[in-house]
Nucleic acid binder design. Structure first.
Lengths: 137, 137
DNA sequence: CCTTTGTTATATTCATGCTATAACAAAGGA
DNA sequence: TCCTTTGTTATAGCATGAATATAACAAAGG
Protein backbone atom coordinates (compact mmCIF):
# COMPACT_ATOMS: atom_id res chain seq x y z
CA UNK A 1 0.00 0.00 0.00
CA UNK A 2 0.97 3.61 -0.49
CA UNK A 3 2.11 5.95 2.24
CA UNK A 4 2.29 9.62 1.35
CA UNK A 5 4.06 12.15 3.53
CA UNK A 6 3.92 15.86 2.80
CA UNK A 7 6.79 17.65 4.50
CA UNK A 8 5.32 21.02 3.55
CA UNK A 9 1.99 20.32 5.19
CA UNK A 10 1.09 22.05 8.44
CA UNK A 11 -0.25 18.73 9.68
CA UNK A 12 2.13 16.89 12.00
CA UNK A 13 4.10 14.08 10.36
CA UNK A 14 3.04 11.49 12.94
CA UNK A 15 -0.59 12.50 12.37
CA UNK A 16 -0.27 12.15 8.60
CA UNK A 17 1.23 8.72 9.14
CA UNK A 18 -1.55 7.67 11.49
CA UNK A 19 -4.19 8.85 9.02
CA UNK A 20 -2.57 7.05 6.10
CA UNK A 21 -2.64 3.77 8.02
CA UNK A 22 -6.32 4.24 8.91
CA UNK A 23 -7.13 5.02 5.27
CA UNK A 24 -5.27 1.86 4.28
CA UNK A 25 -7.39 -0.22 6.65
CA UNK A 26 -10.62 1.39 5.44
CA UNK A 27 -9.62 0.65 1.82
CA UNK A 28 -9.00 -2.97 2.78
CA UNK A 29 -5.39 -2.66 1.69
CA UNK A 30 -4.36 -3.41 5.24
CA UNK A 31 -6.18 -6.32 6.87
CA UNK A 32 -6.20 -7.90 10.29
CA UNK A 33 -2.95 -9.79 10.76
CA UNK A 34 -0.94 -7.77 8.26
CA UNK A 35 2.38 -6.55 9.54
CA UNK A 36 3.53 -2.96 9.29
CA UNK A 37 7.20 -2.14 8.78
CA UNK A 38 9.20 -1.73 11.96
CA UNK A 39 9.51 1.79 13.33
CA UNK A 40 13.15 1.96 12.31
CA UNK A 41 12.57 0.59 8.82
CA UNK A 42 9.62 2.84 7.99
CA UNK A 43 11.42 5.84 9.46
CA UNK A 44 14.41 5.10 7.28
CA UNK A 45 12.30 4.74 4.12
CA UNK A 46 10.34 7.91 4.82
CA UNK A 47 13.40 9.87 5.85
CA UNK A 48 12.00 10.79 9.23
CA UNK A 49 13.06 10.07 12.77
CA UNK A 50 12.31 6.79 14.47
CA UNK A 51 10.32 8.50 17.21
CA UNK A 52 7.98 10.10 14.72
CA UNK A 53 6.91 6.68 13.45
CA UNK A 54 6.82 5.32 16.97
CA UNK A 55 4.47 8.11 17.99
CA UNK A 56 2.11 7.25 15.14
CA UNK A 57 2.17 3.55 16.02
CA UNK A 58 1.54 4.27 19.71
CA UNK A 59 -1.42 6.45 18.73
CA UNK A 60 -2.83 3.73 16.48
CA UNK A 61 -2.55 1.23 19.31
CA UNK A 62 -4.24 3.62 21.71
CA UNK A 63 -7.15 4.08 19.30
CA UNK A 64 -7.44 0.36 18.67
CA UNK A 65 -6.09 -0.10 15.15
CA UNK A 66 -2.91 -2.12 15.73
CA UNK A 67 -1.30 -4.33 18.32
CA UNK A 68 2.37 -4.01 19.13
CA UNK A 69 4.59 -6.71 20.48
CA UNK A 70 8.30 -7.21 20.56
CA UNK A 71 8.51 -10.19 18.24
CA UNK A 72 6.18 -9.35 15.34
CA UNK A 73 6.39 -5.55 15.36
CA UNK A 74 3.18 -3.71 14.57
CA UNK A 75 0.27 -5.86 13.43
CA UNK A 76 -3.07 -4.61 12.15
CA UNK A 77 -5.76 -5.49 14.67
CA UNK A 78 -8.89 -3.38 14.71
CA UNK A 79 -10.47 -3.49 18.14
CA UNK A 80 -14.07 -2.59 18.90
CA UNK A 81 -13.55 -2.45 22.65
CA UNK A 82 -13.35 1.27 23.37
CA UNK A 83 -15.70 1.99 20.48
CA UNK A 84 -17.81 4.45 22.46
CA UNK A 85 -14.85 6.80 22.78
CA UNK A 86 -14.13 6.57 19.05
CA UNK A 87 -17.79 7.13 18.20
CA UNK A 88 -17.90 10.19 20.41
CA UNK A 89 -14.83 11.58 18.68
CA UNK A 90 -16.46 10.98 15.29
CA UNK A 91 -19.61 12.76 16.46
CA UNK A 92 -17.88 15.96 17.52
CA UNK A 93 -15.78 16.02 14.35
CA UNK A 94 -18.89 15.48 12.26
CA UNK A 95 -20.70 18.27 14.11
CA UNK A 96 -18.12 20.83 13.01
CA UNK A 97 -18.22 19.58 9.43
CA UNK A 98 -22.01 19.75 9.26
CA UNK A 99 -21.96 23.22 10.82
CA UNK A 100 -19.59 24.46 8.13
CA UNK A 101 -21.66 22.74 5.45
CA UNK A 102 -24.85 24.42 6.63
CA UNK A 103 -23.14 27.82 6.68
CA UNK A 104 -21.91 27.28 3.14
CA UNK A 105 -25.37 26.24 1.88
CA UNK A 106 -24.57 22.59 1.32
CA UNK A 107 -27.84 20.68 1.50
CA UNK A 108 -28.55 17.54 3.49
CA UNK A 109 -28.87 15.60 0.26
CA UNK A 110 -25.48 16.76 -0.95
CA UNK A 111 -23.85 15.72 2.30
CA UNK A 112 -25.51 12.31 2.34
CA UNK A 113 -24.47 11.75 -1.24
CA UNK A 114 -20.93 12.67 -0.25
CA UNK A 115 -20.99 10.13 2.58
CA UNK A 116 -22.41 7.44 0.32
CA UNK A 117 -19.84 8.10 -2.42
CA UNK A 118 -17.06 7.77 0.13
CA UNK A 119 -18.42 4.50 1.46
CA UNK A 120 -18.58 3.23 -2.13
CA UNK A 121 -15.05 4.41 -2.86
CA UNK A 122 -13.63 2.68 0.20
CA UNK A 123 -15.42 -0.56 -0.62
CA UNK A 124 -14.29 -0.64 -4.24
CA UNK A 125 -10.59 -0.59 -3.49
CA UNK A 126 -8.08 -3.12 -4.80
CA UNK A 127 -5.53 -4.91 -2.70
CA UNK A 128 -1.78 -4.50 -2.85
CA UNK A 129 0.76 -6.51 -0.94
CA UNK A 130 3.83 -4.40 -0.40
CA UNK A 131 4.02 -1.10 1.34
CA UNK A 132 5.41 1.51 -0.99
CA UNK A 133 6.68 4.75 0.40
CA UNK A 134 6.21 8.00 -1.46
CA UNK A 135 7.21 11.45 -0.38
CA UNK A 136 5.70 14.65 -1.65
CA UNK A 137 8.42 16.93 -2.98
CA UNK B 1 -25.47 33.04 22.26
CA UNK B 2 -23.12 30.90 24.30
CA UNK B 3 -19.37 30.77 23.89
CA UNK B 4 -17.57 27.96 25.69
CA UNK B 5 -13.84 27.92 26.13
CA UNK B 6 -12.03 24.95 27.62
CA UNK B 7 -8.63 25.97 28.92
CA UNK B 8 -7.72 22.34 29.56
CA UNK B 9 -8.40 21.26 25.99
CA UNK B 10 -5.51 20.46 23.71
CA UNK B 11 -7.30 22.40 20.98
CA UNK B 12 -5.97 25.92 20.49
CA UNK B 13 -8.05 28.67 22.09
CA UNK B 14 -8.37 30.66 18.87
CA UNK B 15 -9.56 27.50 17.10
CA UNK B 16 -12.17 26.79 19.78
CA UNK B 17 -13.37 30.37 19.43
CA UNK B 18 -13.58 30.10 15.64
CA UNK B 19 -15.54 26.84 15.91
CA UNK B 20 -17.98 28.26 18.45
CA UNK B 21 -18.80 31.15 16.15
CA UNK B 22 -19.38 28.80 13.21
CA UNK B 23 -21.64 26.63 15.38
CA UNK B 24 -23.54 29.76 16.36
CA UNK B 25 -24.12 30.65 12.72
CA UNK B 26 -25.22 27.11 11.85
CA UNK B 27 -27.69 27.16 14.76
CA UNK B 28 -29.07 30.45 13.46
CA UNK B 29 -28.15 32.14 16.72
CA UNK B 30 -25.86 34.41 14.77
CA UNK B 31 -27.33 35.87 11.58
CA UNK B 32 -26.06 38.02 8.78
CA UNK B 33 -25.62 41.56 10.08
CA UNK B 34 -25.23 40.60 13.73
CA UNK B 35 -22.27 42.19 15.45
CA UNK B 36 -19.72 40.25 17.44
CA UNK B 37 -18.07 41.79 20.49
CA UNK B 38 -14.90 43.71 19.80
CA UNK B 39 -11.67 41.79 20.12
CA UNK B 40 -10.78 43.62 23.31
CA UNK B 41 -14.21 43.19 24.89
CA UNK B 42 -14.51 39.47 24.12
CA UNK B 43 -10.94 38.89 25.21
CA UNK B 44 -11.67 40.62 28.49
CA UNK B 45 -14.83 38.59 29.11
CA UNK B 46 -13.15 35.31 28.26
CA UNK B 47 -10.01 36.11 30.19
CA UNK B 48 -7.73 35.62 27.22
CA UNK B 49 -5.41 37.89 25.33
CA UNK B 50 -6.62 40.31 22.69
CA UNK B 51 -4.51 38.67 20.00
CA UNK B 52 -6.10 35.29 20.59
CA UNK B 53 -9.53 36.68 19.73
CA UNK B 54 -8.07 38.70 16.87
CA UNK B 55 -6.57 35.53 15.40
CA UNK B 56 -9.95 33.79 15.51
CA UNK B 57 -11.68 36.77 13.87
CA UNK B 58 -9.03 36.99 11.14
CA UNK B 59 -9.49 33.28 10.47
CA UNK B 60 -13.26 33.67 10.26
CA UNK B 61 -12.85 36.51 7.77
CA UNK B 62 -10.41 34.46 5.71
CA UNK B 63 -12.89 31.57 5.53
CA UNK B 64 -15.78 33.88 4.67
CA UNK B 65 -17.86 33.97 7.84
CA UNK B 66 -17.48 37.59 8.98
CA UNK B 67 -16.50 40.97 7.64
CA UNK B 68 -14.31 43.28 9.63
CA UNK B 69 -14.24 47.04 9.44
CA UNK B 70 -13.02 49.72 11.72
CA UNK B 71 -16.36 51.27 12.59
CA UNK B 72 -18.68 48.33 13.26
CA UNK B 73 -16.19 45.74 14.47
CA UNK B 74 -16.82 42.18 13.39
CA UNK B 75 -20.11 41.56 11.59
CA UNK B 76 -21.49 38.18 10.59
CA UNK B 77 -21.45 37.90 6.80
CA UNK B 78 -21.34 34.43 5.30
CA UNK B 79 -19.75 34.56 1.87
CA UNK B 80 -20.13 31.89 -0.80
CA UNK B 81 -17.32 33.24 -2.97
CA UNK B 82 -14.42 30.91 -2.22
CA UNK B 83 -16.85 28.06 -1.61
CA UNK B 84 -14.81 25.57 -3.62
CA UNK B 85 -11.93 25.82 -1.17
CA UNK B 86 -14.29 25.29 1.78
CA UNK B 87 -15.96 22.34 0.05
CA UNK B 88 -12.59 20.74 -0.62
CA UNK B 89 -11.65 21.14 3.03
CA UNK B 90 -14.94 19.52 4.05
CA UNK B 91 -14.29 16.62 1.68
CA UNK B 92 -10.88 15.72 3.09
CA UNK B 93 -12.12 16.04 6.65
CA UNK B 94 -15.09 13.84 5.83
CA UNK B 95 -12.84 11.27 4.21
CA UNK B 96 -10.93 10.71 7.45
CA UNK B 97 -14.15 10.49 9.45
CA UNK B 98 -15.68 7.93 7.09
CA UNK B 99 -12.44 5.93 7.12
CA UNK B 100 -12.52 5.74 10.91
CA UNK B 101 -16.22 4.89 10.83
CA UNK B 102 -15.65 2.00 8.40
CA UNK B 103 -12.81 0.66 10.54
CA UNK B 104 -15.03 0.76 13.60
CA UNK B 105 -17.90 -1.03 11.84
CA UNK B 106 -20.24 1.92 11.64
CA UNK B 107 -22.62 1.30 8.76
CA UNK B 108 -23.54 3.70 5.97
CA UNK B 109 -27.06 3.93 7.37
CA UNK B 110 -25.78 4.86 10.82
CA UNK B 111 -23.61 7.60 9.39
CA UNK B 112 -26.39 9.01 7.22
CA UNK B 113 -28.72 9.00 10.18
CA UNK B 114 -26.07 10.85 12.16
CA UNK B 115 -25.78 13.49 9.44
CA UNK B 116 -29.54 13.86 9.22
CA UNK B 117 -29.94 14.16 12.99
CA UNK B 118 -27.34 16.91 13.02
CA UNK B 119 -29.04 18.81 10.24
CA UNK B 120 -32.30 18.53 12.18
CA UNK B 121 -30.63 19.66 15.40
CA UNK B 122 -29.10 22.72 13.77
CA UNK B 123 -32.40 23.69 12.15
CA UNK B 124 -34.41 23.36 15.34
CA UNK B 125 -32.41 25.85 17.36
CA UNK B 126 -33.87 28.82 19.16
CA UNK B 127 -32.56 32.34 18.94
CA UNK B 128 -30.91 34.33 21.67
CA UNK B 129 -29.87 37.93 21.50
CA UNK B 130 -26.96 38.49 23.80
CA UNK B 131 -23.64 36.75 23.70
CA UNK B 132 -23.00 35.05 26.99
CA UNK B 133 -19.54 33.92 27.84
CA UNK B 134 -18.93 30.74 29.74
CA UNK B 135 -15.61 29.21 30.68
CA UNK B 136 -15.06 25.58 31.48
CA UNK B 137 -13.43 25.21 34.92
C1' DC C 1 -10.84 66.09 21.43
C1' DC C 2 -11.55 61.66 23.05
C1' DT C 3 -12.83 56.97 22.74
C1' DT C 4 -13.17 52.74 20.30
C1' DT C 5 -12.34 50.12 16.31
C1' DG C 6 -9.21 46.73 13.77
C1' DT C 7 -4.37 46.27 12.76
C1' DT C 8 0.55 45.85 13.23
C1' DA C 9 4.92 45.36 15.72
C1' DT C 10 8.08 43.47 19.13
C1' DA C 11 9.29 40.47 22.84
C1' DT C 12 8.79 36.80 26.15
C1' DT C 13 7.17 32.41 27.96
C1' DC C 14 5.64 27.89 27.28
C1' DA C 15 4.18 23.70 24.87
C1' DT C 16 4.73 20.73 20.97
C1' DG C 17 6.88 18.57 16.94
C1' DC C 18 10.98 16.60 15.25
C1' DT C 19 15.52 15.10 15.52
C1' DA C 20 19.77 12.87 17.57
C1' DT C 21 21.88 9.59 20.41
C1' DA C 22 21.77 6.14 23.59
C1' DA C 23 20.45 2.33 26.21
C1' DC C 24 17.30 -1.47 27.77
C1' DA C 25 14.67 -6.12 27.92
C1' DA C 26 12.62 -9.54 25.08
C1' DA C 27 12.36 -12.53 21.32
C1' DG C 28 14.24 -15.18 17.37
C1' DG C 29 17.84 -17.01 14.35
C1' DA C 30 22.49 -18.81 13.40
C1' DT D 1 25.97 -18.71 23.18
C1' DC D 2 26.20 -14.70 20.31
C1' DC D 3 24.07 -11.48 17.36
C1' DT D 4 20.34 -9.02 15.38
C1' DT D 5 15.91 -6.94 15.56
C1' DT D 6 11.93 -5.74 18.01
C1' DG D 7 9.32 -2.06 20.78
C1' DT D 8 10.24 1.05 24.54
C1' DT D 9 12.21 4.61 27.36
C1' DA D 10 15.28 8.45 28.49
C1' DT D 11 17.67 12.68 27.64
C1' DA D 12 18.96 16.55 25.07
C1' DG D 13 18.68 20.08 21.44
C1' DC D 14 16.35 22.82 17.96
C1' DA D 15 12.46 24.93 15.55
C1' DT D 16 7.80 26.25 15.37
C1' DG D 17 3.47 27.74 17.09
C1' DA D 18 0.35 29.23 20.81
C1' DA D 19 -0.54 32.62 24.15
C1' DT D 20 0.64 36.58 26.68
C1' DA D 21 2.20 41.48 27.56
C1' DT D 22 2.89 46.27 25.89
C1' DA D 23 2.78 49.46 22.70
C1' DA D 24 1.60 52.18 18.91
C1' DC D 25 -1.01 53.45 14.60
C1' DA D 26 -4.89 55.20 11.32
C1' DA D 27 -9.75 55.49 10.85
C1' DA D 28 -14.29 56.29 12.28
C1' DG D 29 -17.82 58.28 15.44
C1' DG D 30 -19.69 60.89 19.28
Amino acid sequence: MLIEIDFNSSEALYMQLRNQIILGIARDMLRDGDSLPSVRQLASELGVNMHTVNKAYALLRQDGYVKLDRRNGAVISVSLENRSYQVESIHSDMEMIVAQAICKDISLNEMQKLVQDMYDAFSARQTSIDIIVEEKE
